[in-house]
Design a protein around this nucleic acid. Structure first.
Lengths: 132, 132
DNA sequence: TGTAAGGCTTCCCATGATGGGAAGGTCAAG
DNA sequence: CTTGACCTTCCCATCATGGGAAGCCTTACA
């Protein structure tokens, strides 16, 4: 199967498949005489794996680690769990940061008239004027 | 004041001050004979404004909008509030996405032994095997 | 059989916000 | 007068993705 078919079978764009190949994540099974990349069901499976990992927020580097663990039959589930746990902690840290932003912004918005007048506690806060 | 002083007075790195200048966010008050950038308290105030906006998660583009509104004495607070509201919605959407990832990952982690054995529901999920 | 359409190749560029670092000019203190 | 700390511009890297050009290949149809 060509790259276009592998793309629609996996949901990963052809552009990305080539990029993943470039960074060593996945190689085509071979090439045709005319240099077209060739993929089999194995490769599509790997592409789906990558896509699922990305959709759970894993970086490509983490995804590579997970992929290697997947292919390593002598892995321990502890090793996998550690990658996941680290990622969960990272996500939770970022969520907390954003929630803090939202909290501040909602407070400022609540205090802002939102009318035709120029007075605005949001701008006052950004300008460092301790009004709100 | 030179860029170094403006940097420590505002908390924005010299590198970033130059970048913000490049994209048209802030210009130095002038230059010395030897081409050094010169800043006054006004400019430091603007830099602090930018920094605060960034810390609330606004993009540089949104920050530019807010900066223009700040400097426009005939702005309406409604215009400012709209920028903030859009940003809040964006943050909340991203928070929800990440929370969904965390939820899934926590479930998978919970089901994962985390021991010396290779069996791992996390990998099974990534591989598309509907085990967990 | 010729041609047109669409798929494939590689290569370069852009994003957003930030940092690293080199090469070279400037300033202030000793 | 030298040294070190500052400043200048310029280029490169990050992370994951997309856009697009130039050129080759394949397939389908007239």
């Amino acid at each position: 199967m060509n790259i276009g078919e592998a793309s629609s079978a996996s949901g990963v764009s052809a552009k990305m498949i080539r990029y993943y190949e470039q960074i060593g994540l996945i190689a085509p099974k071979g090439r045709t005489e005319s240099n077209y990349r060739l993929y089999g069901p194995e490769e599509v499976h790997v592409l789906r794996f990558i896509k699922r990992a990305r959709s759970l927020g894993f970086s490509l580097e983490e995804t590579e680690t997970l992929l290697k663990l997947w292919q390593d039959k002598s892995r321990t589930s502890a090793a996998v769990k550690e990658v996941a746990t680290t990622h969960i902690n990272d996500l939770e840290r970022r969520i907390a940061e954003m929630q803090s932003m939202v909290k501040t912004l909602k407070h400022l918005s609540h205090c802002c008239g939102g009318d035709h007048r120029p007075d605005c506690p949001i701008l006052d806060d950004l300008a460092g004027e301790n009004v709100a």
